[in-house]
């Protein structure tokens, strides 16, 4: 068995240790004897998106995001939307997560059109939501608790009938108002948690890997791993955030 990962725009969307999510997926597949390859797809580069099982899109600096929106509109947008509808797995973080929605409207009313692959939108706010936070995954994503670090001023509002990735236990999540965090649509996982999200939350990592294995091979039986360091790191941060 093998999973092919496409890391989109690694040269611009690589803030906040995003690389750690790729390292984590690769290792957890390798430790189970499952092959893994990672292709980096930069601005201006073309590829057949139907060859990939997992797409990873991270967060980036504002100045560089303008550069890649032009590239998206040059055909990648349609291929990505088709991949979403085809049930391929997406892990999208911060700016990459926002990009899956309809648009980002800045605080002073400038609207930036995004992919619209999932029904949600983001509105710029003047307060930065920034700190360690935690949330509980929805049942369809395994139900475990996730710890991470959020750092965003955009407030994301999900469309009616679109499921969040989880419910905030402590922190802001999507908008600091409705208790939702991230999005789960088909096999699209979106979150504001960088940090990176996966290493300290191995159950979520395995749910993501399983979603790709099931789509490709019809079933997935991931052997349990000795996650003692993972659990230690998760629990230490969880305790720091919640005091419990």
């Amino acid at each position: 068995m093998e999973l092919k990962i496409c890391h989109l725009y690694p040269e611009v969307l690589n803030l906040y240790g995003d690389r750690g999510n790729i390292i984590c997926m690769r290792r957890r597949l390798e430790w189970r004897g499952i092959g893994c390859s990672v292709d980096l797809l930069r601005i201006g580069e073309k590829a057949d998106f139907t060859q990939y099982d997992i797409f990873f899109i991270g967060g980036g600096q504002d100045f560089e995001q303008e550069v890649l929106l032009g590239d998206l509109r040059d055909g990648k947008d349609k291929s990505l939307i088709a991949a979403v509808e085809d049930g391929r797995t997406f892990l999208t973080i911060c700016g990459g997560y926002q990009m899956m929605g309809h648009y980002y409207e800045t605080h002073d009313g400038v609207k930036c059109e995004f992919l619209g692959a999932v029904d949600f939108c983001t509105v710029g706010a003047d307060v930065r939501m920034i700190d360690n936070y935690c949330f509980k995954l929805g049942a369809e994503s395994g139900g475990s608790t996730v710890v991470g670090f959020e750092n965003h001023s955009g407030k994301t509002y999900l469309g009616a009938g679109v499921n969040p990735l989880g419910r905030v236990i402590k922190g802001n999540g999507n908008n600091g108002e409705d208790g939702t965090e991230g999005v789960r649509y088909k096999n699209v996982f979106g979150s504001y948690s960088h940090g990176p999200i996966l290493p300290k939350n191995p159950q979520l990592c395995d749910v993501i890997l399983e979603s790709a294995l099931v789509r490709k091979y019809g079933k997935a039986e991931l052997e349990p791993l000795t996650d003692s360091f993972e659990v230690q790191a998760h629990d230490a941060v969880y305790k720091m955030i919640t005091g419990a």
Binding site: N14, Y16, G17, R19, G20, I23, I130, F149, G195, P196
Partner: peptide, 9 residues
């Protein structure tokens, strides 16, 4: 800095 995610880079 409260955010230690840079260690992954």
């Amino acid at each position: 800095g409260h955010d230690i995610s840079w260690i992954w880079d």
